[in-house]
Write a protein that binds this DNA or RNA. Structure first.
Length: 578
DNA sequence: GCCGTTTTCGGCCCGACTGTTTTCAGTCG
């Protein structure tokens, strides 16, 4: 069964919502399709399997009507309603919604009153005859100018950026705001605070008194990294950086800071759920606080708000409307892993293959981090471009690692390797070679366009191979660059649990693989996790924080993660695989 | 279209900023 169905259906539901919006249909119905698109897109199980088991309607957000459409798609690869909607709207019209500042009402007017049906046509009219647009109701000179700018910008901008890029950019902007006189507290919020793997825009929150807020906004929009100012008000500023990333700053007063932090951390869906809870009690929740009529019930801290709503505190990484509200209501939120829980790093490279530092340098760097354990896992021979080791070089390298390791009492240094998983699931080394090592990570590096079924049996075969401790970056994806393999995480996780093999969360911000939803499905199936950096130099060891964020987004606790375990427990596990 | 410790109908989150407006609609987050 092919999980591509999930992605396709999510895209179609999203497009149905767009089309309905252009046709001016009921907002709540439209929202239902957007929600259905999201939950289907985030599912780790294939819709076809759920449909076969008659369990589609169990998915929250999927009701009778959307379930029927999913079944229709599985059977016919079409959704009738989508075809009908498409026939009523010019083909090029929905693309106009992608342009900033253009919403459904504006695009509908361009279409019905201005006979403009595509991005190309809008561009043409803006160039040749902008006067034609002034005749449309609600269109003035400024709006037309803004449309021209947005259009030019849309052609040059790049979409979402990776977590590490966003972190650096946000810190730069936050520093500029922190330097403002009267800025009492500055926090980065938004999807960055939630640790999402890619970031669409940067949200910064500043605590200051009302009188100096405009001055702080002014300083923010003047920051060096800013390329264009989208909006500038008394308490809110919105800019696009030189690099094409949108950043928003809000200045709030102390009594509202927690409410604002919750509000701007999102996700939007999580906030909607919180507000629904408030409304149910006859209260109101906004970015200024939680109110009963005019009486403020909470707002200074996030904790106050969750408590007032009868919920356990929900860590930012969990705020995705993936069941955390229900868990918080039952005081059932897991104690998530923290960076400080990590006691070692079990995937790193040295100059022996494609790393940049020596064994000794990597050991010193790990000791400086306070790690008690580490594994050096250079590439195997098929990774020719990465200077992979053959059996002979591997043996010599293992000797060198063990010799270096003997110098240190404070850290256990494991002689390991990152052995290639071939297309059919066999490995680059025979079992007798692997048996000589202290730690074996098996990873896919090529043939990453395999279909779901083949990819899954490939990894399952690797999992079942003796002496394998861990599967490295299981999907092989590179964020924003290649999708990697579609995998059936349920099947893989059950195999991993049955064979006592760990699944890696590769902490490199280009990979984050297992991804958040896969990590959650893995631990739910009883599989163990190892979070490693795949460092290719000493600086790469610092990337652990991104892996931990991803684990937290996957509801992972320290107990689930082998490289947080006490030394004796971990050594017992390592030996059991030899 | 979905959903239910105000259940099978009648709800469904909230405010800042902008532009085109004399009181508000549209967009965005």
């Amino acid at each position: 069964m092919d999980n591509m169905d999930n992605k396709e259906i999510a895209i179609i539901f999203e497009r149905i919502a767009d089309l309905m919006e252009l046709l001016g249909e009921n907002h709540f119905r439209i929202n239902s399709y957007r929600k259905a698109a999201r939950v289907v897109g985030e599912l780790t199980e294939a819709v076809a399997e759920l449909a076969a088991a008659g369990r589609l309607e169990e998915i929250p957000g999927i009701g009778k009507s959307t379930a029927e459409k999913i079944r229709q798609y599985i059977e016919t690869h079409r959704i009738e309603q989508y075809d009908q909607l498409q026939a009523r709207v010019p083909q090029g019209l929905p693309a106009l919604l992608e342009i900033g500042g253009l919403g459904p009402k504006t695009v509908a007017k361009l279409w019905k009153q201005g006979q403009i049906e595509s991005v190309a046509e809008l561009k043409q009219v803006l160039q040749d005859d902008p006067g034609r647009l002034v005749k449309l109701e609600g269109f003035g000179a400024k709006k037309i100018q803004q449309m021209a700018e947005s259009l030019a910008f849309a052609e040059s901008s790049g979409g979402r950026i990776r977590l590490d890029e966003a972190t650096a950019l946000a810190e730069e902007l936050a520093e500029a705001v922190r330097a403002c006189k009267g800025a009492r507290r500055v926090e980065v919020a938004g999807s960055l605070r939630r640790g999402k793997e890619t970031i669409g825009d940067i949200d910064i929150l500043c605590e200051a008194t009302e009188d100096i807020a405009p001055q702080i906004i002014e300083t923010f929009v003047q920051t060096e990294a800013v390329g264009r100012v989208l909006a500038q008000g008394e308490t809110k500023g919105s800019v696009v950086t030189e690099g094409g990333v949108q950043a928003d700053l809000r200045v709030m007063q102390r009594e509202s800071f927690g409410a604002a932090l919750a509000y701007f951390t999102g996700s939007k869906e999580h906030n909607v759920r919180l507000r629904e809870l408030a409304v149910r009690r006859g209260w109101k929740l906004n970015e200024y606080g939680l109110y009963d009529e005019d009486c403020r019930l909470a707002g200074r801290t996030e904790e106050e708000i969750y408590r007032a709503l009868g919920l356990a505190y929900v860590q930012p990484e969990l705020r995705e409307d993936r069941g955390e509200i229900t868990a918080a209501a039952r005081k059932n939120i897991p104690k998530l892993i923290e960076l400080a829980d990590v006691k070692g790093d079990l995937h790193m490279h040295t100059v022996a293959s494609d790393g940049r530092n020596t064994i000794e340098e990597m050991i010193d760097a790990c000791r400086a981090k306070g790690y008690r354990c580490m594994a050096i896992c250079d590439h195997s021979k098929s990774e020719v471009q990465a200077n992979g080791l053959d059996e002979k070089r591997l043996a010599a390298h293992a000797d060198a690692i063990r010799k270096a390791a003997r110098k240190y009492k404070d850290i256990t240094v494991l002689a390991g390797c990152e052995v290639d998983i071939f297309k059919d699931g066999s490995l680059d080394f025979w079992a007798d070679v692997l048996a000589e090592l202290d730690f074996v990570t098996a990873s896919p590096h090529s043939a990453l366009s395999l279909g779901r079924a083949e990819a899954t049996s490939r990894l399952v075969r690797a999992i079942e191979t003796p002496h394998v401790h861990c599967i490295g970056h299981p999907s092989g994806r590179l964020i924003n660059r290649r999708a990697g393999m579609e995998i059936d995480i349920e099947t893989i996780a059950h195999a991993a649990a049955a064979n006592d093999v760990a699944l890696e969360i590769n902490a490199h911000p280009w990979r984050l693989d297992l991804r958040d939803t896969h990590a959650r499905a893995a631990v739910a199936a009883g599989a163990k996790i190892i979070i490693s950096t795949d460092a290719h130099d000493t600086g790469g060891l610092d990337l652990m924080k991104y892996g931990v964020l991803t684990a937290r987004r996957g509801w992972v606790t320290a107990d689930d993660v082998i490289n947080t375990w006490p030394a004796t427990k971990m050594k017992a596990w390592l030996k059991s695989k030899r």
